[in-house]
């Protein structure tokens, strides 16, 4: 019997995770969002909580909501959740669970020339995390001490796509209040969609603050990659198949690796291992 490839398995898990985090599909036609108790829990991936189908809270939105609230400047609850998920799985979440990651991969299927981005662009997401998610919501507050979720407000293309467009299409009263911020957000969404056509996971690589958090934790996470130096013949196949532009042999703990497993499948000597345990090195 033919073995199912890692890419097919990954796609099936991504679709299942997408459905699990966006199970309230009937809300699209009603123009409502889900208001049940599941929303007190965060989703591990980036998924706008104003998406009509969303079942859980977006961790990046939730972190800013708490930091910008009247009583708190920092969210121990959400940061703790992200640290736990990140240290257990690292960027495996990006590769297998994140709904916006799947959307970007679908866009990337469009038959246009594929390009790579320069390495410096991958550092932008750390600045986005620091400035728009951590500092601004807590530091820029009104007279009541309430801050704004600045990443959601000025950048997040997932919010515009999953929440903005569906809700504005069903609420005429909301459409009447559209202004410059919506124009900015639509422009960013269009740029991200164009970027995703040419660059694999353009948003994950350059702008995603959640990817930045999980990327840093990739270096110490329980789920990790190991290279068997005795088996590796340095053929370079793993680096050539990697769509995140990582060379696993040089950097198996790279913050950019989304643990998709393509390199593991491509390795002719079975030298790359992904898992919670270290694989014993062969002599």
């Amino acid at each position: 019997m033919k073995k199912i490839g890692i890419n097919v398995k990954r796609k099936l898990i991504q679709i299942a995770a997408f459905g699990f985090t966006n199970s309230k599909l009937a809300n699209f036609s009603k123009g409502n969002i889900y208001t049940g108790n599941w929303k007190q829990f965060c989703n591990p991936g980036l998924n706008c909580y104003s998406c009509p189908a969303a079942t859980y809270a977006c961790p990046i939105g939730a972190m800013q909501a708490v930091a910008g609230s009247m009583n708190y400047r920092f969210s121990f609850y959400v940061v703790g959740f992200l640290l736990a998920v990140g240290v257990l799985f690292g960027r495996l979440i990006c590769g297998y669970i994140c709904p916006f990651g799947l959307i970007q991969e679908v866009i990337h299927l469009l038959p246009v020339k594929k390009i790579k981005i320069p390495k410096w662009m991958t550092y932008i997401k750390y600045a986005v995390l620091l400035v728009f998610v951590i500092i601004l919501p807590a530091a820029v507050t009104n007279y009541m001490g309430i801050g704004k979720p600045t990443f959601c407000q000025y950048i997040c293309p997932a919010g515009t796509l999953e929440g903005g467009i569906p809700l504005l299409s069903t609420h005429s009263e909301l459409r009447q209040t559209l202004g410059h911020i919506f124009s900015l957000k639509i422009t960013i969404l269009v740029l991200v969609v164009i970027g995703c056509c040419f660059v694999y996971r353009f948003f994950c690589k350059t702008l995603c603050p959640l990817g930045a958090i999980y990327g840093l934790l990739n270096k110490v996470s329980f789920y990790h990659m190991t290279i068997d130096d005795h088996k590796c013949i340095h053929c370079g196949k793993c680096a050539s198949v990697c769509k995140m532009d990582v060379n696993p042999v040089k950097e198996c703990d790279s913050a950019e690796c989304i643990r998709c497993g393509k390199c593991v499948e491509s390795c002719p000597t079975d030298a790359i291992h992904l898992g919670f345990r270290d694989k014993k090195s062969s002599q």
Partner: peptide, 9 residues
């Protein structure tokens, strides 16, 4: 509904 998320904030 998060008005900032959908671009109305």
């Amino acid at each position: 509904i998060c008005l900032e998320c959908i671009g109305l904030g």
